[in-house]
Simulated assay, not measured.
Amino acid sequence: MNKPSLVVLAAGLGSRYGSLKQMDHFGPSGETVVDYAIYDAIAAGFGKIVFVIRKHFEAEFKEMFGPKMEGKVQVEYVYQELDALPKGLSVPESREKPWGTAHAVMMAAPVINEPFAIVNADDFYGRSSFQKIHDHLSTLNNEELSACLVGFVLENTLSDHGRVSRGICQVDENGNLKEIIERTHIFKKENVGAYFEDEGVKTELTGKEIVSMNLMGFTSVIFEQMEEAFAKFYKEQSGHPKAEFFIPTTLDNVRKSGIKVPVLMSEERWFGVTYKEDKPIAQRNLNQLVEKEVYPHKLWT
């Protein structure tokens, strides 16, 4: 069987960050956050990296990442654009915002024929997270629909500087997913816990909830189901210019079809860069990991 692949969602425009954070420097030798994800994925045994990017920064992105990856892992680039739609669909006049994370993953279909994992380009997941999902994906029959999720504890994934989006999970006694709901306005409370807002209503959270950070895995037969689900989403939501097709919805559709979706709990402490103010925190965290010799001072040699 082919080694699992890693799909890196790097097409975001960083509106809350103020620039293309997927290409910003965070490590002591100028590494990006996603450099560490790729480094860990290669160490875990992933055989291919698929970057989902936008055409307008293609040259800059390839110049930054191409030389680092050469000779270390197979690399593919695919493109998320507004007009990259299934046959028969067109971009509504009011649409300016990208179609969401699940649409981004759909772009990888032509280059994926094996089980694969998904990561955000601006999130740090930790080496053991990649090892857990790699090892699980390596056991799957790619001809059968299957999915999994790496779970994190909510309080370990919040920003001090504003709202975040998380898929909040309910897990059964056997460690399988019962439900996942995307919450796009989760805020850290001043002391302990968190809350989310939905249409002006605040709902309290303990901070101990299991959440998805979009580190999920699927067999490649998922793409057929995703295209059908996107067509349904388009029919229902194309008149709403900010509606998005989220990858947690795809995962939940697998669960609803009767297939068990294991939640692989990670002990790692996640961090990411949603806001510009998150940058020095991420830099400090990465420097500490380098000082502990988890990573070399210069990641790529």
Rank of each mutant, 00 (worst) to 15 (best):
G239H: 14
E31W: 07
Q225N: 12
L9Y: 02
V211N: 05
A59K: 14
M107F: 03
S257M: 05
F130G: 02
N156T: 13
Y77R: 09
W300C: 09
E199H: 15
D160V: 01
C148Q: 07
E224N: 08
V263C: 02
Q74V: 12
M106Y: 07
A41P: 04
D252A: 10
H134N: 13
E63F: 01
K62E: 12
H25L: 11
C148E: 13
P241H: 05
I180T: 04
I210S: 08
K298H: 12
G193Y: 09
E291P: 01
G162Y: 08
A41V: 09
E244H: 03
T301I: 12
T32M: 14
F246L: 11
S90N: 11
C148A: 13
G126M: 11
A102Q: 05
G175R: 09
Q170S: 13
Q225V: 00
L20A: 02
F65P: 00
F130H: 15
E291F: 01
K292Q: 15
Q74S: 10
L13A: 14
L140C: 10
N174Q: 15
Q283F: 00
I133S: 06
K208Y: 09
V34E: 09
R269A: 13
Q131G: 06
V290L: 06
P86D: 05
V73M: 09
F26L: 10
L264R: 14
G100T: 09
P115L: 07
A37T: 12
T206K: 07
S128V: 11
F57E: 11
T157A: 15
I168Q: 02
K235R: 14
F51H: 03
K72V: 10
E114H: 06
K62V: 05
G151M: 02
N142F: 08
R269E: 14
T203Q: 10
F46G: 00
D83M: 09
D123V: 13
E236S: 11
E244Q: 15
M107H: 08
K68F: 06
V75P: 06
L264M: 14
S238I: 07
N2M: 14
E114G: 01
F46A: 01
E70F: 04
R183Q: 15
V34C: 10
L145S: 06
N141W: 00
E197H: 01
Q288D: 14
V75Y: 02
E70H: 12
T250K: 01
V273K: 05
F124M: 11
F46Y: 03
L177N: 06
F271Q: 07
P280M: 05
M216G: 00
P67D: 07
A102G: 06
I222W: 01
Q170I: 00
H56W: 13
K68D: 09
N253F: 08
A43K: 15
M106G: 09
T206W: 03
G47R: 10
K235M: 12
K21I: 06
G12D: 11
F187S: 05
Y39V: 08
V221S: 14
H25V: 05
A108D: 04
G193L: 10
I259M: 07
Y77F: 13
V7C: 11
H297W: 09
I247A: 11
V171C: 13
E190Y: 00
E155R: 15
S238N: 13
N142L: 08
K55D: 12
V8A: 05
E244A: 11
V75G: 04
N191I: 10
H161K: 12
V254F: 12
P110M: 04
T206P: 07
A41W: 03
M64E: 13
N120R: 03
A121L: 03
